[in-house]
Design a protein around this nucleic acid. Sequence first.
DNA 1: ACGATTTAGTTTCATTTGCAACCAATGGCA
DNA 2: TGCCATTGGTTGCAAATGAAACTAAATCGT
Lengths: 155, 155
Amino acid sequence: MASAKRKPSPADTLVLEEFLPYRLSVLSNRISRAIAARYAKTFDLTIPEWRVIAVLGRRPGLTAKEVAEATEMDKVAVSRAVARLVASKRVASREDRNDARKQSLTLTAQGESVHARIAPIALAAEERLLETLSSRDREQLDALLDHLLEAAKRL
Amino acid sequence: MASAKRKPSPADTLVLEEFLPYRLSVLSNRISRAIAARYAKTFDLTIPEWRVIAVLGRRPGLTAKEVAEATEMDKVAVSRAVARLVASKRVASREDRNDARKQSLTLTAQGESVHARIAPIALAAEERLLETLSSRDREQLDALLDHLLEAAKRL
DNA sequence: ACGATTTAGTTTCATTTGCAACCAATGGCA
DNA sequence: TGCCATTGGTTGCAAATGAAACTAAATCGT
């Protein structure tokens, strides 16, 4: 396998194929695109919209701000995704009783249906990626990702 | 730490924060943005341009096609990045002697200089991310990434 | 109670990107 | 040789993204 064959290069030489940020970017793109390909056309749904649906599916009633925090999308992206989702009647937004600036967002029945149909597709894709890893490896991966996510905040 | 605290959710529930593609996307974005922030303005360089420079720095004379393969960028992105780099005199392109469609790309002295100044910045950022990992962890990470990159091809 | 600040969310505009169609040169082969 | 398919690369257009300015509502300090 590649990593075994690769001979380490001098510490001051940047080899793109070995460069962590680059490899993560390629990996993330490959996966996201592969998964999105399975639902984008069928459901006419963008990745940001899917993320909004995913988070509202489990945590109904969030405001746009909270969705932005939960998904790490910026508020403009959320605003646009929500606008499309409301237009397509997949999300309902009602004004907060005590703060007219906020609106609480929930999935409509249609939104729920989309959620219910895509979640298994997404989970199956994830499982296909992970199925060849031992459960030990999975734990390692999980821990490493947590670690890196945290470390990356501090960059 | 987070992964230790997280209680596993039912296998059929998609929890965005635990979803591998999502976590990779967040991680990759955080890192890329942090690093790009350090050179983008100073050098007036986009990420695709930087990738082209990085690969030409180590493998001069590639064609645009080969750069696209080496960087996993699509050929349009390469074409545009190269066009900008040629305009800014960081890359020289000369026509292939036996195939007029191809052009062999190399860094100019200016391009080399950019490469020489950015590589250490990029490597230092990578090192900051990895410095808290044991060398065992680093190997694990390397192996897991290889594995996932391979598995993701098959999606 | 009232102006200054902050907060939630939207709009605008300039860039970036991604896809498909395209052009030009080459290779294959009848 | 002459035509078709393929390959390397560019262009054009439509959609996605990001930064900054903006609106409207709520809060704070006096």
